[in-house]
Design a binder for these strands. Structure first.
Length: 598
RNA sequence: GUCGGGGUAGCUCAGCGGUAGAGCAAACGGCUCAUAAUCGUUAGGUCGCGGGUUCGAAUCCCGCCUCCGACACCA
C-alpha cells in the first residue's frame, strides 16, 4: 500500500549563490530519497524554497546598493536554476516572501501566542548609530574585557574563546561601518521552549531510528532549554501579527522562526497551485504519513527541537490545525519522522569560504561539467556521516576510474554489441546456472539497495549498485561473447541478453542517483516515456498581484518501477552513445589555477 | 572554556566487541567487445598515543595529543 512521504529539504539562504557543499548536504541526498520513494510507488511531496529574510540579506543589499527584495529576487533565481540543473525533483520549490508564507507564518505566531507559548520580554539590544538598525552581536567588535584582545566579536572572543555580551566590550564598534553602537531597551517575543521540554524529551527518546549523532545531540540540547527570541529589530521579515505592531516597521519575526514554517506553507502552496487546496492534509494531518527532513549538521536543533515545539504548541489550533470540511484528516500536524543531517564538505582540505576564494559554486561547476558526475561524487564521497574533502584530482579520478570505467563502460560495451549484432533485444537460448545466478544477484539489488535508501544510507546504496555493475563486467570477461559469436550465435545471444537484462534493471537502480544518464539509457534500451524526465518552472500570481516562480514537475507520469526490469525480446534499441565523458587530467590543474586566481 | 564528532593501507573512506575492509594508486598476469575501457592475482596497516574493562577491543571506559563543528540573535 502506497505511503505518504514528505521530503522536507533545508531552505537555502538567498544572500548569494550556493556552493557544492550546500547541495551535498541537503540537495542531492534528499533528491535520491524522493526519487527512490516515487519509484516505489509512494506518494511523495518534496518541498523547499529560498529563505529570504534576515540580517545577512539586508547587509548584502546595502553592499550591492539594492533593496532586500531585489537581493532575494536575484538569488532566488540563481539558486532555483542551480537546483533545476542538478535535477532536484521538488514538487514545490518556492520562497519565503510569498503572501501564502506570510499568512501561514502569522497564523502560527498568532496561535502560539494565544496558546501562551510566546512570551514578551524587554532586552538590551545594540543598534547602529548611523543607520538605526539592529546590530547582531557578531557584527560588533571591540576589545575583549577578559583578555584584552583588540578584535573580539560581540558574541565571543576568538582569542580567549570566552562568550561575551556586546555591552561589555571595550570600545565597541560596528563591523559594518565602524560606528559606535547604541544600546537600548527593546521588547522581544520569546518562544517558551521550556514548556515543551518534557514532551520533546519523551518524543526524541522514542526516535530510535534517527542517526545516533542527531538523537544524542538533540537530547543533550534540550537539557538546558531557555525561551528563545523569535523577533528581531529589523525591517525585513514577516510582520508581527498583533494589533500594536500593525503599523510598525522596525520589528519583525526572526528568520529562523519563519523559515521552518516554510515546510508547511510550501505544502499548502503546492496543494493550492494544483487546484486541490486540502491535499496537503494527506501529508500533514495523516498519522500514517512519514516526514523526512534533510539538512546540514548546523541545522539539527531547528528541526529536532524548535520546529517540533512550534508544531506541538500549534496543536489543533489556528487556521490549519483543525479539520477541513469533508476531509478525513483531523489529526494534529505531523512531527518529523526522521531528521537526516549531513556533515560538511571541505574543499582541497579547507573549509569553504567565499571571501577567501575557497569555493566552487554550483552554477560555475555545471557550466563546465555534467550534473550526474557531480551527483555521483557528492554521493559516493559526500559528507554523509563525517566531514569529507572535495578535491579536483579526486573528482576526476572518481569520474574516470569509477563512473566511466565501471558503469559507463558496462552500458556502452553491452549496448554497442547488441545494437550492432542484433539491433533489438535478442532471444535467449536456455540459461546456464551462471546466467541465472548473475541475474539473481543483480535483481537482488532492489531489496538490498532499497533497504539502504530507506535508511538514508546513500553512500552504501550507490557502492552496492557499483558492485553489481562490476559483477556484470566480470561476467562478460568470463563469458567472452565476442568470441563465442563466431562459433555459436545462439549462445552469444543468450550472454548478451543476460547482460542487457542486468543493465535494464541497473538502469532503474541508478535512476535516483544519476537521473540524467538513466533517462538516456532508458531511451537507448528502447523504452518510451520518462523514467526521470525534465523538471519545469511555473509562474504563480498571488492575490496582491505579485508573482513568483516555482520549480516543480509532473512526476506522477514517470514510468519507472523499483522492481526487476521486464525486457521484451525483440524490443528495438536506439543508437547508443556513451553515457559519461572521460575528463582530461589537465582539468585538475586548470581548476586549481582558476581557484587560485579567483 | 563547555558540549559533540573525527584521527583505520600511499590517497579517499567503510567497519564500531569475536581471526583488519572497499575503491583508487603499486606489482604481475589474462582479454581486446567496449570511452587505452575491462577481468584476475599479489602486495600493503603495531586501526593517533598511553592506561583500563573483557576469555577477546579499531570497536566499551579513562587520560593525553591533534583536527573539525555547535555553543541563541552567523540560515
Amino acid at each position: 500500500m502506497p505511503e505518504h512521504i514528505l521530503v522536507a529539504v533545508a531552505w537555502p539562504y538567498a544572500n548569494g549563490p550556493r556552493h557544492i557543499g550546500h547541495v551535498a548536504g541537503f540537495g542531492v541526498p534528499s533528491d535520491i530519497f524522493a526519487r527512490y520513494q516515487r519509484l516505489r510507488g509512494n506518494h511523495v511531496l518534496m518541498v523547499s524554497g529560498t529563505d529570504e529574510h534576515g540580517t545577512p540579506i539586508t547587509i548584502a543589499a546595502d553592499k550591492e546598493g539594492l533593496t532586500p527584495r531585489e537581493v532575494a529576487d536575484r538569488y532566488n533565481k540563481v539558486i532555483g536554476d542551480d537546483l533545476y540543473n542538478l535535477g532536484l525533483s521538488y514538487d514545490t520549490f518556492t520562497r519565503t516572501t510569498t503572501a501564502n508564507h506570510y499568512r501561514v507564518t502569522q497564523d502560527l505566531f498568532k496561535t502560539l501566542y494565544e496558546h501562551g507559548y510566546i512570551l514578551r520580554k524587554e532586552t538590551l539590544g545594540a543598534f547602529s548609530a548611523s543607520t538605526g538598525r539592529t546590530l547582531p552581536d557578531r557584527y560588533i567588535e571591540g576589545t575583549c574585557p577578559i583578555c584584552g584582545y583588540g578584535e573580539a566579536r560581540g558574541d565571543q572572543c576568538d582569542n580567549c574563546g570566552n562568550q561575551l555580551d556586546p555591552v561589555d566590550l571595550i570600545n565597541p564598534r560596528s563591523k559594518i561601518d565602524g560606528s559606535v553602537p547604541v544600546f537600548k531597551e527593546t521588547e522581544h517575543f520569546f518562544l517558551d521552549l521550556p514548556a515543551f521540554a518534557e514532551q520533546l524529551r519523551a518524543w526524541i527518546e522514542r526516535q530510535e531510528h534517527w542517526r545516533p549523532n542527531v538523537r544524542s545531540f538533540s537530547l543533550n540540547f534540550i537539557k538546558e532549554l531557555k525561551p528563545r527570541a523569535i523577533t528581531r529589530d529589523l525591517e525585513w521579515g514577516v510582520p508581527i501579527p498583533l494589533p500594536e505592531y500593525a503599523d510598525r516597521d522596525d520589528k519583525k519575526i526572526y528568520v529562523w522562526f519563519d523559515a521552518v514554517i516554510g515546510y508547511l506553507s510550501a505544502s499548502i502552496e503546492w496543494a493550492q497551485n494544483r487546484g486541490t487546496p486540502d491535499a496537503w492534509r494527506e501529508w500533514w494531518q495523516n498519522p500514517a504519513a512519514r516526514h523526512y527532513y534533510f539538512m546540514g549538521k548546523d541545522n539539527i536543533v531547528f528541526h529536532t527541537v524548535i520546529w517540533p515545539a512550534q508544531l506541538i504548541g500549534y496543536g489543533k489550533g489556528g487556521v490549519y490545525g483543525g479539520a477541513a470540511v469533508g476531509s478525513p484528516y483531523a489529526a494534529p500536524l505531523q512531527l518529523p519522522y526522521n531528521v537526516v543531517s549531513s556533515e560538511f564538505l571541505t574543499m582541497e582540505g579547507k573549509k569553504f569560504s567565499s571571501s577567501r576564494g575557497v569555493v566552487i559554486y554550483v552554477n560555475d561547476f555545471l557550466s563546465r561539467y555534467d550534473p550526474d558526475p557531480l551527483r555521483y561524487f557528492l554521493t559516493i564521497a559526500g559528507p554523509e556521516s563525517q566531514d569529507t574533502d572535495f578535491t579536483w584530482a579526486e573528482f576526476v579520478r572518481r569520474n574516470n576510474d569509477e563512473l566511466v570505467a565501471t558503469w559507463g563502460n558496462l552500458v556502452n560495451r553491452t549496448l554497442t554489441n547488441v545494437y550492432r549484432n542484433f539491433g533489438s533485444v535478442p532471444a535467449p537460448g536456455s540459461l546456464t546456472p551462471g546466467d541465472t545466478a548473475l541475474i539473481a544477484a543483480v535483481e537482488g539489488g532492489f531489496a538490498t539497495i532499497g533497504e539502504l535508501l530507506d535508511a538514508a544510507r546513500f553512500k552504501a546504496g550507490l557502492s552496492e549498485a557499483m558492485r553489481l555493475a562490476a559483477l556484470v563486467n566480470s561476467y562478460l570477461s568470463e563469458q567472452e561473447p565476442w568470441k563465442v559469436i563466431k562459433s555459436d550465435r545462439e549462445r552469444a545471444a543468450t550472454i548478451w541478453y543476460v547482460a542487457l537484462r542486468c543493465v535494464a534493471s541497473l538502469r532503474v537502480i541508478f535512476t535516483p542517483f544519476l537521473p540524467f544518464s538513466s533517462q538516456r539509457l532508458h531511451e537507448y534500451l528502447g523504452y518510451d516515456g520518462y523514467i526521470a524526465g525534465p523538471l519545469e518552472f511555473r509562474e504563480y500570481t498571488e492575490e496582491h498581484g505579485q508573482s513568483h516562480r516555482v520549480l516543480t514537475g509532473d512526476y506522477t507520469t514517470w514510468v519507472g518501477r523499483w522492481e526487476p526490469a521486464t525486457l521484451p525480446v525483440g524490443q528495438v534499441l536506439r543508437e547508443p552513445r556513451p553515457l559519461f565523458k572521460k575528463l582530461d587530467e589537465q582539468v585538475v590543474e586548470e581548476e586549481l589555477a582558476r581557484m587560485g586566481a579567483g
